[in-house]
Write a protein that binds this DNA or RNA. Structure first.
Length: 420
RNA sequence: GGAGGGGUGGCAGAGCGGUUGAAUGCGCUUGUCUUGAAAACAAGUAUGCCCGUGAGGGCAUCGCAGGUUCGAAUCCUGUCCCCUCCGCCA
């Protein structure tokens, strides 16, 4: 959520920033509502101040209220209720107006309405050739992937990993968690996968994107589409003590997505699925550090790509392609020589203070200072199914076997998936 | 699922319906003292909002939402969460 206070102070700055994203925010309506809001607060506060004064005098003097006082205070009370009721509807509309507005992009985010305008900022060394043997052909033949089994038990866009395929995924997750916790100082978190509506609201997934989320009607809980949702809620409503930031978390969880909006895209193989495993980095930082943190997280993710021997590139997403809650996003794509395309294995964003404002996460810069909103950043390192695909397609040998990256061997116990 | 108990400030823990935003203790900050530290003493120490250039003033908040009342942390109703015991299940 954007800052109402800042919008009121500088409406045109916000309008201009949101227009860059192709949005036409109802700024004028917001200003009207805020004006009304302040009026109502003043009215109600004045009446309440008067009522407090009279009641306190009665108490101090240890006497019964006079009939006139009672009549007058009843009237005041009724008036307060009326004003409060109107205030409630104004606040409700204000909230409903503000919640669907996305974050404002940072200045250096390239303009553009779709992925055509994304900018490749870096491409690693390495080949981008193709051998034409896509994972959907290779992996089932190797006996490590069974899409027919997943289709029969769960439908399309699921997958069953078997044998060394399952072990490979487990090894990848474990390896990435170890790198991030041991080398980069992230604290490992294992959060719930089902969360309350308020938690989804806090991360920005609700109310706008409910169509992509799985929901249990009976308990009103939502399945997380990424660990970001849970990690973002870790300090909701809290004031973080001085000298605690930056907080760096990492979690390995499944991610559940309906993918309705992508119907028809990526139907072959396991590139786009309803459930996938992902190792997610998340940070709470002071605003001054957020841009440097974002770059550091990109470093962390790309260093893993390098150690997995991937050819990769880093994209800076344009204003029209960054996520709802994001102010700036880098995507990392790795080359898959089988399906001959770049696979998005990571998306790393700063959400500035957008999420902390939504969930009331604050911090105190130093003892006695007033509270501020931390910036939150999130990024995958890395997302499964696609990373798994890349290992298989990159490691495929002439003879049909698959050699896996050296760094994974301690986690798998073997270095080769034998040819069928 | 059944039976009880409880949710108050950073923590612990009081609080006859009326100077209670809230005793007291601990913690924390600052000052005095000290070569330094500790101890002792003194003062300060919640969050949000509204008005005001400022000084400052006002309002709200004792899990949450309603209600009773001139007045509610205190009474009533609902709800959420936590703890203990029993049952059931992993």
């Amino acid at each position: 959520m954007l800052s109402l206070e800042q919008i009121v102070r500088d409406p045109e700055i916000f309008r201009a920033a949101l227009v860059r994203r192709g949005e036409d925010p109802p700024i004028d309506r917001i200003l009207e509502l805020d004006f009304r809001r302040k009026q109502l607060i003043q009215d109600a506060d004045a009446d309440r101040a008067n009522r407090n004064k009279v009641s306190k005098a009665i108490g101090d003097e240890k006497r019964k209220p006079t009939p006139e006082e009672i009549a007058e205070m009843r009237e005041t009370g009724d008036r307060i209720k009326t004003v409060e009721a109107e205030l409630a509807t104004v606040l409700e509309e204000l909230n409903a107006t503000l919640l669907p507005i996305p974050n404002t992009p940072l200045d250096d985010v390239p303009d553009g309405l779709d992925e055509e305008s994304n900018v490749v900022v870096r491409t690693s060394d390495g080949l981008t050739e193709t051998h034409g043997n896509a994972h959907w052909d290779v992996a089932p033949a190797l006996g490590i992937l069974d899409i027919e089994a997943s289709a029969s038990m769960s439908g399309s866009r699921f997958y069953v990993l078997k044998s060394k395929g399952a072990r490979l995924q487990r090894a990848l997750s474990a390896y990435m968690l170890d790198v991030l916790t041991e080398e980069h100082g992230y604290t490992e978190i294992d959060p719930p996968l089902l969360v309350k509506p308020e938690t989804m609201l806090g991360s920005g997934n609700l109310p706008k994107f409910k169509d992509n989320l799985y929901h249990d009607d009976e308990t009103d809980l939502w399945l997380i589409p990424t660990a970001e949702v849970a990690l973002n809620a870790l300090h909701q409503g809290q004031i973080i003590d001085p000298d605690v930031l930056p907080l760096k978390y990492v979690a390995r969880t499944p991610s559940f997505r309906k993918e309705h909006t992508a119907a028809g895209r990526d139907v072959r193989g396991i590139k786009r699925v309803h459930q996938f495993e992902k190792v997610e980095m998340f940070r709470y930082v002071e605003p001054e550090e957020s841009e440097a943190s974002l770059e550091e997280m990109v470093e962390h993710a790309t260093s893993i790509c390098e150690r997995l021997d991937f050819t990769y590139r880093v994209l800076k997403l344009c204003t029209g392609d960054i996520g709802f809650q994001s102010a700036k996003t880098y995507d990392i794509e790795v080359w898959s020589p089988g399906s001959a395309e770049w696979l998005e294995v990571s998306s790393i964003s700063t959400c500035t203070d957008f999420q902390s404002r939504r969930n009331g996460t604050r911090y105190r810069p130093e003892v006695g200072a007033s509270t501020r909103l931390p910036h939150t950043l999130n990024g995958s390192a890395l997302g499964m199914s696609r990373t798994w695909i890349a290992v298989i397609e990159n490691g495929l040998q002439e003879d049909g076997s698959v050699i896996i990256p050296e760094v994974l061997v301690p986690y798998t116990g073997w270095d080769c998936i034998e040819a069928p």
